[in-house]
Amino acid sequence: MEGAFAIVVGALFAVSVYLLLSGSMIRLLLGIFVLGNATHLLIFVAGRLTRDEPPLIPDGLKVAEAAIANPLPQALILTAIVISFSLFSFLLVLAYRAYQSLETVDTDRMRDAEPEAARQVLRGSDV
């Protein structure tokens, strides 16, 4: 079972990297979205896949008696999902604002912070 999902996880990572390497802002954002999902699955599968009971303690018992799924990765992933969602929202808005003011979605042209001219000066100067 894990083997099959290992392939899915790998494929999702590949898709994500391919999108990240594109010079287009939107593809980059989608790449990050896929990256998040791939990572959540990676942690989940690494914590073992099981069709046992969910990590709940039945009423009347103090400790679950039947085998239950591994609760730790689930707790980790739960917060990771919410955090990566917050990050994704932030990046979307950042991309939108960058497009508004720079008027391009081509990351190669988004270089107001490190303009080509300034780099020339840096290279030629004597520190």
Binding site: A6, G10, L12, A14, V15, S16, V17, L21, L42
Partner: peptide
């Protein structure tokens, strides 16, 4: 490159 990363994670 993407394929290499993907294979890496699978392994």
């Amino acid at each position: 490159i993407a394929g290499a990363v993907g294979v890496g994670f699978t392994l």
